[in-house]
Design a protein around this nucleic acid. Structure first.
Ligand SMILES: [Mn+2]
Ligand SMILES: [Mn+2]
Ligand SMILES: [Zn+2]
Ligand SMILES: [Zn+2]
Lengths: 145, 145
DNA sequence: ACTAAGATTGAGATATAATCTCAATGGAGA
DNA sequence: TCTCCATTGAGATTATATCTCAATCTTAGT
């Protein structure tokens, strides 16, 4: 069991819940991939690997993972909700290609700072944000279009 | 008929389409409100006013309005898709209150500029973006919580 | 005015994503 | 062992949006 799964186990048990095989299975699958993944995709993957985790359990476990802070839920717009693990992954935002669907990450600390200021000016207490830039990625502009 | 509806009529007809009573009805309802509104809400509103515009027509007309540039479709996250008219409404982003659901608007030109730079660095050609900040609005923090 | 071609419409079917229900299962402590 | 309650999966349900298609308009041509 890897370090992140262990942290999840600790989180689960610290809440007096059970670290079941189903939960472990979902967690390890999430931690195993370095890509953004959506819930249905994850479910299909697990099924194809012989896991018996149901849709309900997958969604419930993803909620727990997000709660634990080990996983982040990202809304990419256009109905795309994906998850990514946070370990070794500082905050970033996303560039979403409208042609091939690929997603690049970028960091811009000053944008984060400006958001704080905007919130102060508006007397708004921020807890999080979502910034997606839509357009065409390198591969989709050099080839054609 | 107001100025925006007239512009919509021009757009519709310039495409060789018909400016039907149903389309006019939907357009005028959108232009009449200064709030963000979602499609189902709009449909319900129209029904309650005796309009016979169907769900299909409401959605189809909203697509046309967005196409025309007179209306913008905004993804507020958490499954909230809303529309707002663009006239006299320069580009802005949104502060979404997680408690009362209210939405404030803000402008931060420097954020826009930094986004451009981030795209250049990544060889990404942007066509648009979505920035939502989630948290608690003034009313929801002064009272309590 | 008549007609044919094509645009538009509404009712309801369908798609999709996510959540909910609830009976069966199973672990943990008394 | 017994009881309690967390957990689970199958399937129902919800919510939102899109699609289908027959009936109805509009328009242009005659
Ligand atoms: Mn990411
Ligand atoms: Mn707005
Ligand atoms: Zn691309
Ligand atoms: Zn509020």
């Amino acid at each position: 069991m890897n370090s992140e799964s262990l942290q999840f186990k600790n989180y689960i048990e610290s809440k007096g819940l059970l670290f079941t095989p189903e939960r472990q299975c979902v967690a390890e699958e999430v931690f195993a991939s370095h890509n953004h993944m959506d819930a249905e995709e994850l479910l299909k993957h697990l099924k194809s690997k012989g896991s018996k985790a149901s849709r309900a359990t997958v969604y419930r476990t993803l909620d727990l993972l997000v709660e634990s802070g080990l996983v982040k839920k990202i809304d990419l717009g256009e109905g795309r909700l994906v998850y990514e693990h946070t370990a070794g992954h500082p905050h970033h935002d996303h560039l979403v290609c409208l042609k091939c669907g690929s997603v690049q990450e970028f960091e811009e600390p000053l944008i984060e700072q400006l958001q704080e200021w905007a919130c102060e000016k508006a007397n708004f207490k921020p807890t999080g944000h979502s910034l997606n830039i839509y357009g065409y990625c390198r591969g989709c502009t050099t080839g054609k279009r």
